Measured scan of single mutants.
Amino acid sequence: MATGGRRGAAAAPLLVAVAALLLGAAGHLYPGEVCPGMDIRNNLTRLHELENCSVIEGHLQILLMFKTRPEDFRDLSFPKLIMITDYLLLFRVYGLESLKDLFPNLTVIRGSRLFFNYALVIFEMVHLKELGLYNLMNITRGSVRIEKNNELCYLATIDWSRILDSVEDNYIVLNKDDNEECGDICPGTAKGKTNCPATVINGQFVERCWTHSHCQKVCPTICKSHGCTAEGLCCHSECLGNCSQPDDPTKCVACRNFYLDGRCVETCPPPYYHFQDWRCVNFSFCQDLHHKCKNSRRQGCHQYVIHNNKCIPECPSGYTMNSSNLLCTPCLGPCPKVCHLLEGEKTIDSVTSAQELRGCTVINGSLIINIRGGNNLAAELEANLGLIEEISGYLKIRRSYALVSLSFFRKLRLIRGETLEIGNYSFYALDNQNLRQLWDWSKHNLTITQGKLFFHYNPKLCLSEIHKMEEVSGTKGRQERNDIALKTNGDQASCENELLKFSYIRTSFDKI
């Protein structure tokens, strides 16, 4: 039985969820670079991206490699990797027998973001014989899940209580170790020597080791999670996991709180800001991140802002960003909400898709409305799209047979046209069989910064309504002859009103 693990408890099935942008060198404390989270699957090609990484700022997932063999891993080693800020997950990587050479110096898994409450997941690794993470000293947050690894031993010899604050939620089941077939031998045991430290858990006094050649490092209890030197002297209180010299914040392997210019500090002093819960960055760093993602459509890219001495992905609820200094300031009234469309555009074809934009005031991208039916549609669209004030790209209304009016965009005031449909149009209306009105132009103002209007096959939309939009939106004169079809717009509506004058002759039985 794995020490510190839980057996036999019912657990939810383990679901495996399925960018080499360097964020800056980590400095003297770390020998390499800070790398983003990685999802490495199918083959070993991307694994080489770990070569210079000291910190993975995010998670590391290595999974679904069915053609790899043990010899493929023999020359692979990433000794610079010290810390993973989120979680480490391995799933069905064939041929991998140990992690001792792959990650010989991995010391800390912070667990800032977890995989279903777990910071370390080893699942269905069919050839893994031992973990071998002999320098792993601290899992700051989260638990361990090690399950269905039929060859995995050296679990009962690990004292997880020396690595985690609590072992109650560890789930370590259905491994070879369960069948008591392992016969784990710690260093020196074969020669009758006791080389590794022994600890007591559940009444068992057991030597602690990761492999037959690597003991588990056990520091004096007084050192807590700070770690200790090879001689057993406690590291500085700002260290986490390990250090090369005692009581020196510049000799830590990793930091308990924050890293700044080669030393570990309790908090980031001005003019620095907390970033990702582990390091200090200056304003320029946060500003660069903001600008890199301002026009990016890459998933996970955030326009970072500053709030409460932190550089964070977005302002919290009730705050909006001051564009001059990136500071989050309290909103006066309802907060603006910028919604970034991942692929640059979004099609609204149902109430469900409209709900995804609920509360958005600025759309960074283009909207395509293609709704053919739905219950209580006008009210639903207004509830979900009615706060949109600005669209950076274009607005396209296409084959939306259920629409009679666009009044559900009740606050839309600006279409920038930074991206144009077919390279020309910022407003595009095609084949809307029941569209009769755009907006009530006596109450609604709309500016279209650039781009043209396109109207074709809107049989109940009168040309007068379209011409009014040209005047109000500032697009009059931009359109070419064929942009607004004269014969297919309003051709099934009563669009022309003329005053009919009647004269009559009164007659009676005795007068003409």
Rank of each mutant, 00 (worst) to 15 (best):
Cys328Gly: 02
Tyr273Asp: 01
Ala198Val: 06
Ser296Ala: 12
Ser296Gln: 15
Cys234Val: 01
Phe205Thr: 14
Asp177Leu: 10
Phe66Pro: 12
Asp178Trp: 10
Glu97Ile: 11
Cys311Leu: 04
Leu64Gln: 04
Glu33Ser: 14
Gln245Arg: 13
Tyr272Ala: 01
Cys228Gly: 01
Leu90Val: 07
Val93Phe: 07
Gln287Ser: 14
His214Val: 12
Pro336Cys: 02
Pro220Ser: 04
Cys243Phe: 00
Thr320Asp: 09
Lys80Ser: 09
Ser296Asp: 15
Phe205Lys: 10
Ser324Lys: 14
Arg279Trp: 04
Gln287Phe: 14
Arg92Phe: 06
Phe73Thr: 04
Ile82Cys: 06
Val218Asp: 08
Asn325Pro: 04
Glu130Pro: 01
Pro336Glu: 08
Thr68Gln: 12
Asn42Asp: 10
Asn179Lys: 15
Val218Ile: 14
Ser213Ala: 04
Asn242Tyr: 11
Tyr134Arg: 13
His307Val: 05
Gly37Tyr: 07
Gln276Lys: 07
Lys193Val: 03
Asp261Cys: 03
Gly58Lys: 00
Pro79Glu: 08
Glu181Ser: 08
Asp169Glu: 14
Trp160Asn: 01
Glu57Ser: 08
Leu81His: 00
Glu147Val: 12
Lys294Ala: 13
Ser98Trp: 01
Asn309Lys: 06
Ser112Glu: 14
Tyr272Ser: 03
Cys264Ser: 01
Arg279Cys: 02
Met137Phe: 05
Glu57Asp: 15
Asn195Ile: 10
Pro249Trp: 07
Asp165Trp: 10
Lys217Ile: 14
His291Tyr: 15
Val126Ile: 06
Ile158Pro: 07
Trp160Arg: 15
Val305Trp: 03
Asn322Trp: 06
Met137Val: 11
Phe115Ile: 15
Cys311Ala: 05
Phe103Leu: 03
Arg256Gln: 13
Tyr171Pro: 08
Cys223Phe: 04
Leu174Asn: 11
Lys100Ile: 06
Pro31Tyr: 13
Ser317Asn: 04
Ser237Thr: 06
Cys235Val: 00
Val305Ile: 04
Ser213Pro: 12
Arg110Cys: 08
Ile185Pro: 13
Val218Tyr: 06
Arg74Leu: 02
Phe258Val: 06
Gly300Ala: 10
Cys153Asn: 02
Asn42Leu: 07
Gly95Phe: 05
Cys335Glu: 04
Ile139Gln: 01
Arg110Asn: 03
Asn117Thr: 03
Lys310Val: 05
Leu174Cys: 13
Pro31Val: 07
Arg279Asn: 05
Cys186Glu: 04
Ser296Asn: 14
Cys182Trp: 04
Leu155Gly: 14
His212Ala: 14
Arg208Lys: 14
Asp184Met: 14
Gly188Trp: 13
Cys223Tyr: 02
Leu90Glu: 00
Leu89Met: 15
Ile139Phe: 03
Pro334Phe: 09
Asn42Pro: 02
Lys67Trp: 12
Gly183Ile: 06
Cys182Ala: 11
Arg298Met: 04
Cys223Ala: 04
Tyr94Pro: 14
Asn149Lys: 00
Asn322Phe: 13
Val34Ile: 04
Pro197Ser: 12
Val218Gln: 13
Val121Ser: 09
Asn138Val: 08
Gln245Ile: 09
Tyr134Gly: 13
Val144Trp: 01
Lys310Ser: 07
Phe66Thr: 05
Val34His: 05
Ser296Leu: 09
Asn309Trp: 07
Gln204Thr: 05
Leu155Ser: 11
Cys255Thr: 00
Tyr273Phe: 15
Leu136Gly: 00
Arg298Ala: 09
Thr320Asn: 09
Phe285Trp: 08
Gly203Glu: 14
Tyr87Ala: 01
Phe78Ser: 02
Leu50Ala: 06
Asn257Gln: 10
Leu289Val: 10
Asn309Arg: 11
Asp288Met: 14
Cys234Leu: 01
Glu151Val: 14
Cys228Asp: 06
Gln287Ala: 15
Glu238Thr: 12
Asn149Leu: 00
Cys280Met: 00
Ser284Phe: 02
Gln245Val: 10
Tyr171Phe: 10
Asp177Phe: 11
Val281Ser: 01
Ala190Arg: 12
Thr221Arg: 08
Val93Ile: 03
Ile40Asn: 02
Thr250Asp: 02
Arg162Asp: 08
Ala190Val: 10
Pro79Trp: 14
Ala156Gln: 11
Leu99Lys: 01
His214Glu: 07
Ile222Pro: 08
Ile122Val: 07
Asn138Asp: 11
Ala119Leu: 00
Ala198Lys: 11
Leu102Trp: 11
Leu289Glu: 10
Lys148Asp: 11
Ala119His: 00
Glu168Gly: 05
Tyr304Asn: 06
Thr194His: 14
Asn149Glu: 00
Glu57Ile: 07
Asp248Gly: 02
Leu99Gln: 00
Glu124Tyr: 13
His274Arg: 04
Ala190Lys: 06
Gly111Ile: 00
Gln276Ser: 13
Asp101Lys: 06
Thr140Tyr: 07
Glu314Arg: 12
Cys209Arg: 08
His290Asp: 02
Ser237Ile: 11
Ser225Asp: 05
Arg110Ile: 10
Pro316Asn: 05
Leu120Pro: 00
Gly188Cys: 10
Asn295Pro: 03
Asp101Ser: 15
Phe285Asp: 05
Gly241Asn: 04
Glu49Ser: 15
His127Thr: 12
Val93Thr: 07
Lys129Ala: 11
Tyr87Arg: 00
Asp86Cys: 01
Ile185Ser: 05
